[in-house]
């Protein structure tokens, strides 16, 4: 199979079952909602080292937020609801509570509940106020610029993490440009995030290492500088490989994002320097979700 002359390899992306939640951050101005969200989703690329994978899903107009102010929707993915709850408390407490004019609300209603403001309220030192509006409880914490509004809890749902595809190009710059086009298109989709910096990964990993303490190490089969000393998967003309990792609330969300991303990465044809599209997997043994590229692009 090929797209615009670029080969789509007959392989599959392997993804994992995760838990996810969504929170809505609002502020008096879009810029400050975004500042809080960027801060909250920092250092959240991989559950291996960060505890949670997080990213901005979309920016929200005032009419789409609970309090009628500009907002940002954030998705967090973890291996369990407990892990999400732990990270949520830290990240909201350090990054959203501290951001001027901010408020944070649950972005999901159905599913297992995790704390959002239930413990944060104690920052109010006895001056915090609870408000039950409909079935939703909010906490008002007095802070130096007024009040921080925080919903008591949010919901978690089963989700999919680690969907991916690889862009194999003649040079690093060409791989990067193709991935940038893919990221721009994928970020317009709802229910998905691209947790890595700028949505792109340059250090794809394999499971295990020659060093027993390490759970993962560099994916040497795709490192162009090791072509001569490993059982490399790279043809001689491939100068660089970049990966796009996508987490979504369902396998269909991930599948749609992969399709949109690959289509955009290939849109400029072979003239763009992109030679092949591949995907990362572990032989199908570790991940519950498989996304065969030919099926995704059919």
């Amino acid at each position: 199979m090929n797209r615009h002359g670029i080969v789509i390899e007959d392989t599959f992306a392997e993804a994992f079952g995760m838990q996810a939640t969504r929170v809505i951050i609002t502020a008096p101005e879009p810029r400050w909602a975004r500042e809080a969200a960027v801060s909250m989703t920092g250092f959240a690329t991989s559950v291996i080292g960060c505890g949670v994978e997080a990213g901005i899903e979309t920016e929200l107009a005032p009419e789409a937020t609970p309090d009628g102010r500009p907002g940002v929707s954030v998705l967090l993915f973890g291996m369990s609801t407990k892990a999400i709850g732990k990270q949520l408390e830290k990240r909201v407490g350090q990054c959203v509570l501290t951001s001027p004019g901010s408020a944070v609300y649950a972005g999901m209603s159905a599913g297992e509940r995790v704390d959002l403001g239930r413990k944060l309220r104690y920052f109010g030192d006895g001056h915090q106020i609870s408000k039950l509006i409909g079935a939703r409880r909010y906490w008002r914490l007095p802070v130096m610029d007024g009040e921080f509004i925080c919903e008591e809890s949010t919901a978690c749902t089963a989700a999919v993490g680690g969907g991916n595809f690889l862009v194999l190009a003649r040079s690093q710059r060409q791989a990067l440009r193709a991935c940038e086009r893919a990221v721009a298109a994928m970020r317009r989709l709802e229910n998905v995030i691209l947790p890595f910096p700028g949505g792109i990964v340059r250090s794809g990993s394999k499971v295990g290492s020659k060093y027993p303490a390490l759970p993962a190490s560099t994916n040497h089969l795709y490192c162009p500088t090791l072509r001569g000393v490993t059982d490399s998967r790279l043809a001689p003309e491939i100068g660089a490989v970049l990966e796009i990792v996508v987490n979504g609330l369902s396998d269909e969300d991930v599948r749609r994002a992969l399709r949109v991303g690959i289509e955009s990465a290939c849109a400029a044809g072979r003239e763009s320097g992109v030679e092949r599209i591949s995907a990362g997997n572990y032989g199908g043994k570790l991940g519950k979700f498989h996304f065969p590229l030919h099926e995704v692009m059919a």
């Binding site: 008002r140 007024g146 009040e147 509004i149």
Partner: peptide
């Protein structure tokens, strides 16, 4: 005198 944002939630309901 303050702008109390939680009133927006109440009023919406």
């Amino acid at each position: 005198v303050h702008e109390l944002d939680y009133l927006r939630l109440l009023f919406a309901a």
